[in-house]
Simulated scan of single mutants.
Amino acid sequence: MRKKIVAGNWKMNLTLAQGEQLINDILQAGLKLQDGQEVVVATPFPYLLKAKSLLKNNPGFYLAAQNVASEKSGAYTGEVSAEMLKSVGVDYVIIGHSERREYFLESNAALAKKIDLSLANGLKPIFCCGEPLEIRKAETQNDYVAKQLEESLYHLSAEQLKDVVIAYEPIWAIGTGLTASAGQAQDMHAFIRSQIAAKYGREAALHVSILYGGSAKPSNAEELFASPDVDGGLIGGASLVAADFVAIIQKLA
């Protein structure tokens, strides 16, 4: 019914040669993707063209950018527009990653603009949402995530929403070695789906892929992906090691 996706976010890592080797190692692993399963590779901007050339003849493999500008074009030195990304063959774009929110102070309103520009240019957003540790400790994570969804996504039509993937990031479990339990992940994913259903209807909610983005690795991916509302993962560190990334992909149900 909905896509099962494993997306690898390289962040600011690897040289071009190292990245090329990583992609080749993944492609040569003999993965057999099933119908409705996708692998997405999110490289740094300078590597997008090379990555596209390596991935293009491999069904089920797609290219993502890690960010996109919130403006269409103009005097924004150092920014990369949605139109530019589309022109080099990008399929997906990660929007609102917790690191972008924290280090670059990206607001929900700015992310809504990025969503709109991405969709207008035929890019599929992977929209990240999730709570920091203090919010989880206060047990107000549902309200926190609901606000992120409302302020960045709820202006979309149901038709537009079909091209959006949501990634839940428990921020307290990113790069810390901590991982949300399968139960915690399922609870939040089910909550997110319920919010989408309340806004757009049950049928629309059932078609939205929701990925888990909090330190997934080969040892816990199978349990996480077995949860009924977890449709795959947005993988950070483990996506930089071909054997680990392949092992995670193989856990897709």
Rank of each mutant, 00 (worst) to 15 (best):
F225P: 01
G237L: 07
G214Q: 09
G214R: 12
G214W: 03
I235E: 04
A243C: 01
L234T: 06
S227R: 15
V241L: 12
N220F: 05
A238L: 05
L234G: 09
A216F: 02
A226W: 01
I235N: 07
L224R: 01
A238G: 06
L234F: 11
D229W: 01
A242S: 15
S219Y: 02
G213H: 02
I235M: 06
P228L: 07
E223L: 12
S219A: 15
L240Y: 09
A221S: 14
E222K: 15
E223P: 00
G213R: 07
G237E: 11
P228C: 08
A221H: 03
A243V: 03
A221P: 00
K217S: 13
I235L: 13
P218V: 06
P218I: 04
N220H: 11
A221D: 03
E222A: 15
G233T: 08
A238M: 05
G236I: 01
V230A: 12
A243Y: 00
A226L: 13
S219E: 15
G237Q: 11
A243L: 01
D231W: 01
P228V: 05
V241Y: 10
V230R: 10
V241C: 08
K217D: 12
G236D: 05
G237P: 10
P228A: 12
S227D: 04
P228I: 10
K217I: 03
G213I: 04
G214A: 11
A221T: 05
L224Q: 03
P218G: 13
L234S: 06
G237H: 05
P228K: 14
S219I: 05
G214K: 12
S219D: 15
L224I: 09
F225R: 07
G214L: 04
A226D: 13
V230H: 04
L234N: 09
F225Q: 04
E222D: 10
D229Y: 09
G213N: 11
L224G: 01
L234I: 02
A238N: 08
D231F: 00
L240H: 10
S215V: 01
A221L: 10
A216Q: 10
S239Q: 07
A221V: 03
E223F: 01
A242N: 13
G232W: 05
D231Y: 02
A221N: 07
A221C: 13
I235K: 06
N220E: 10
A242K: 11
S239D: 06
A238I: 05
L224P: 00
G232P: 04
G213D: 08
I235P: 00
F225C: 11
I235A: 07
P228H: 07
